[in-house]
């Protein structure tokens, strides 16, 4: 009889590996950094990780279904352009702007879902096309890079809790605040949104159906699970997470930029982060939190280039080799297979 923890480990081997790899990389990084383990370093690192982590979580949900969403990067770009237009003015206007930004991302995701479910087009191709549409819309919203995001908001959300309270007129030195004062706000956003959105969703019938579809769609259908609802929900949630990334990117950079190359890079990195985080591309295994860790691993690797004296020209090469080696760990499965037929699925 296995204990609870041993069973968890066998079921989440990829996720556990990702956490260990991330901790090892990040703690080593802090030891090597001249100002390691300081709030400033943590704030800067978490700021740079938010957008890619959200896009990676967005990608996870269609992947869990055995699909793929090639539009997540484009939706992030579109929503960051929308946010760069809307998030300013009075606090109420800013909140409305943020709400509309997230709503537009979710709506775009829902459109993806409707096309996939009722159009019965393969997700990878449908989202390839809607990704182009998202870039087109982003160019309409913001033909030239730029934007006007509230400066206070930018400062408050990209620094520590202390600065957040300070910006909005509270007493940052209040006693009850002391334990939290040095936590970066982006870190709270990064872990708060998935905790509030993803974990409850995963436990719902719709969330479980997504896993069931990824394991065996026919069996899920025969069991009477709400397939169509789950698929549309999966893409809607993907759009929502991508919009969270876009909104944060716009606030962080105080601007929007309808950049096709950036959108493509984010989409491709999101796939890499999903795989690193222990989610199977075939579907059915994994989760958004794993992809969050996967995205953090990708980011930490790029942080190393700043402290190590590596020729900048070699950086893309090292990034690529590390990515290739990391995904090749999945190949150990093939060495353990006894019957070669198990390889073909």
């Amino acid at each position: 009889m296995k204990t609870w923890s041993a069973r968890w480990l066998t079921q989440n081997r990829g996720f556990a590996g990702a956490i260990l790899l991330f901790l090892a990389l990040y703690i080593t990084y802090n030891f090597m950094h001249p100002r390691g383990f300081s709030t400033a370093v943590l704030v800067q690192n978490s700021n740079e990780s938010v957008a890619i982590a959200f896009v990676a979580m967005a990608q996870t949900i269609p992947v869990l279904m055995g699909g793929l969403d090639l539009s997540v990067g484009a939706v992030m770009t579109l929503t960051s352009c929308i946010a760069s237009e809307l998030v300013n003015g009075s606090p109420a206007q800013m909140l409305l702007g943020m709400f509309l930004t997230l709503l537009s991302g979710a709506a775009f995701g829902a459109m993806n879902g409707v096309i996939v479910v009722y159009g019965r087009i393969q997700p990878i191709i449908a989202t390839l096309a809607t990704g182009a549409i998202a870039i087109g819309l982003a160019l309409l919203v913001r033909p030239k890079p730029g934007g006007d995001v509230d400066g206070d908001l930018n400062w408050a959300l990209t620094n520590t809790v202390w600065d957040f309270v300070d910006t909005y007129g509270g007493n940052p030195d209040a006693g009850w605040l002391a334990p939290f004062a040095n936590i970066p706000v982006p870190l709270i956003i990064l872990f708060g949104v998935p905790l509030l959105v993803w974990l409850p969703f995963r436990r719902s019938v719709t969330g479980r159906t997504i896993y069931a579809i990824g394991s065996a769609e026919g069996a899920a259908y025969m069991s009477g699970l709400p397939i169509n609802r789950a698929k549309i929900a999966a893409f809607t949630l993907a759009g929502f997470f991508a919009a969270c990334g876009g909104l944060y990117l716009a606030i962080q950079t105080s601007s929007g930029n309808a950049d096709t190359v950036q959108a493509g890079t984010y989409t491709l990195n999101s796939i890499a982060a999903v795989v690193l985080g222990g989610t199977a591309l075939m579907g059915g295994i994994g989760g958004a939190i794993g992809s969050l860790v996967g995205a953090l691993i990708l980011r930490v690797i790029s942080f190393y280039f700043r402290i190590l004296d590596i020729d900048p020209l070699l950086q893309p090469l090292i990034e690529g080799v590390v990515l290739l080696i990391a995904v090749s760990f999945g190949a150990f499965r093939t060495l353990r297979v006894k019957n070669r037929l198990e390889l073909f699925r």
Partner: peptide
């Protein structure tokens, strides 16, 4: 460029709606 991208995406979706539809998975 903006409308080009939108038309490009819409054409791919539109064409596939005409002939690229999958069978429903029911078993």
């Amino acid at each position: 460029e903006a409308y080009r991208q939108i038309i490009y995406g819409a054409v791919i979706i539109g064409m596939l709606l005409v002939y690229g539809r999958n069978a429903r998975i029911t078993s």
